[in-house]
Simulated scan of single mutants.
Amino acid sequence: MTRRQGVVLYGPPASGKDTVTAALTQLRPEYRQFARLKVGSGKSAGYRMGTAEQLRALEAAGGVVYANSRYGNTYVLDRPGLDAGFTAGVPVVHLGQVAGVRALIDGYSAADWLLVLLWCPRATTAERSAGRGDSDTTARLAAWDATREDLEAHPGMAWDLTVDTTQASPQDAARLIDQLLAQRAGAATA
């Protein structure tokens, strides 16, 4: 039996995770952005909004694969949500912490995860954040700094693909990701 395949897009804010995911879904509709459970306020698009009570119940049931807090909210990779993501297609998970990537590949091992590092310079994050109207660009730049420190603290992290999103178009990145996933599927069935 072929293992289910998923994609992890790791990178700092405004590195292109949403844009590359959109290009993936245009390439093949099986790709779907994984909607993390978000407990808090603010932007709800792309998230499944939840309550503190729901989070406690998930934790008690062992359903939390990874949770982190940023921008005053808690973001959760949950087992029921991941199960639903694989039922719907090929989930594309957005992360900005190496600990989250490791928790996902270790804690949800029923899948073959393609690990993609999307990168852009700090100044590009500032420009893109301002260009899309973020009201918290300063916090996003602090998150960019934290992502850089996170990568430097984990030099042995093995990425399947690294894409500089100032050099590669979202469509080119999507094609590379799709090709790598197809190669893995072919190798797994050979």
Rank of each mutant, 00 (worst) to 15 (best):
T124K: 03
Y47I: 05
K38D: 03
G42N: 05
P80K: 09
D145N: 15
Q33Y: 12
W144K: 02
T147I: 07
A174S: 13
V101A: 12
R140S: 07
G46R: 07
R70C: 11
R128H: 15
A57E: 13
A126Y: 09
A99R: 12
T138Y: 08
L82C: 01
T51V: 05
D136V: 09
G133M: 08
A35R: 14
R140G: 13
H94Y: 03
G89P: 10
Q171W: 04
Y75M: 01
S135N: 07
A35N: 10
S41G: 14
L55Q: 08
P121D: 13
A139P: 14
D160S: 11
V39M: 02
M49C: 02
Y47W: 06
W113Q: 04
T124V: 06
L180R: 14
Y47S: 05
W159R: 02
A158Y: 06
D145Q: 15
D164W: 03
T87S: 07
T74L: 03
Q171N: 05
A174M: 09
P80E: 07
A142Y: 12
A139G: 14
A126N: 10
V39Y: 01
L95W: 07
N73T: 03
V64L: 12
T125M: 00
V64M: 14
I177V: 03
L82S: 01
P170D: 04
D160V: 08
M157Y: 13
Y66R: 02
A110P: 00
P170S: 08
G81E: 04
V101G: 13
R36L: 11
M49E: 07
T124H: 02
A158K: 04
P80F: 08
D112M: 07
A103W: 01
Q167P: 12
G46L: 11
P80A: 07
V65E: 00
D78P: 02
A99Q: 10
A173W: 00
K38W: 04
N68Q: 14
A143G: 01
G40Q: 00
A130P: 15
T51F: 04
V76Y: 00
H94N: 03
S135C: 06
L55G: 10
V65F: 00
A126Q: 13
G42V: 05
Y71F: 14
L55E: 10
L37I: 06
V163D: 03
H154R: 06
L118C: 14
A158W: 03
A88N: 07
N68S: 15
T137D: 01
G46I: 05
E53H: 02
V76W: 00
L117E: 12
T162F: 10
Y108N: 12
E53S: 03
D164Y: 11
D106F: 00
T87I: 05
C120L: 13
R79D: 11
G46K: 05
E152F: 15
